[in-house]
Every structure is written in structure tokens, then in C-alpha cells.
Design a protein around this nucleic acid. Sequence first.
DNA 1: TGCTAGTAGGGTAATTAGGGAT
DNA 2: CGTGTCCTAATTACCCTACTAG
Lengths: 68, 68
Amino acid sequence: MAARTNETETLLTPAEVAEMFRVDPKTVTRWAKAGKLTSIRTLGGHRRYREAEVRALLTAVPAPREAE
Amino acid sequence: MAARTNETETLLTPAEVAEMFRVDPKTVTRWAKAGKLTSIRTLGGHRRYREAEVRALLTAVPAPREAE
DNA sequence: TGCTAGTAGGGTAATTAGGGAT
DNA sequence: CGTGTCCTAATTACCCTACTAG
């Protein structure tokens, strides 16, 4: 599917991302400051995050078979 | 609030899982490393665990019988 | 304009990862 | 073989005040 523009680009607040990762909102801010997360700044200086990127990073290892 | 998390997936910290199992957090880490537990890593490298999976493992033994 | 909740920022304590030894 | 404890380094959580979002 061709990637549609960015009309449906959902932005998440620090609190939303923190809930998804089970961390403190300050930690999410720290990730953005470290360049680990794409942060979109509002005109007032607050950060917003891309839902698609967050969900991609939230992908876990679905129970690996076994390790030696 | 605009965005709503589609999957309200609750994650647990190593200390929480350790408390539920009455083991050391280090042991929980070993379980994750052995692939016995699904681990979701934060961007800082810390592990988070699925509450549903942990609770399923906690109620997985109705004590059938004790012999031998 | 004023209001409430959330966020930024800095600083400090607690938790976690990783390896190693018992 | 699995678990609990030791260590160091890194990450995260909670404290505060001021400003922004809606």
C-alpha cells in the first residue's frame, strides 16, 4: 500500500507514551533529548511523539523458542 | 485527550514480577533471558513484562496431585 | 481573562542490567 | 541446573517550581 500522506499521523503526548512503556513521562522526555525518539515540538516547547514510531519501538520479542 | 491506546496492555516492572513470584528480580531477568517470559525492552535497556502473561503463569497449576 | 491539567527543567534517590563468584 | 548475593555502571523514578495546552 502506498504510504498515504500524513493526514492520519497521530501524535501522542508524553503521558501517553509513558503509559505504553510503563515508564515515567520524564523518561520519555529523556529519550527524546537523547535522540532515541522523534520529537515534534509545539510552539510552546512541549513535545509530541509519533504513534507509529512508538508502536514500532514497543514491539517485543514474541517468546523466542529457546536459547543455548 | 485525543489519542486512545487501542490495546491497553499493562506492563510490569521486574520488581513487580519478582514480588508476585516471591523471587529475586535477577531471577525474573534470567527467565526473560531464557525465553520463558516475553520481555519488552525500554529504550534504555530495561525490561518490562506483560501482566497478562505473568498472571497466566501464576495460575497455571491447580495442584493436581503430589506424589513421588 | 481565568482556570485545571500536563509538561519542561534540574537535582537526587531507587531500580535495573550485566558479569562473576558461591 | 537454578537461585540468591556481590560488585559497578547505566537507567529510571520522584522531588521541586515555572510555563504551556486547551
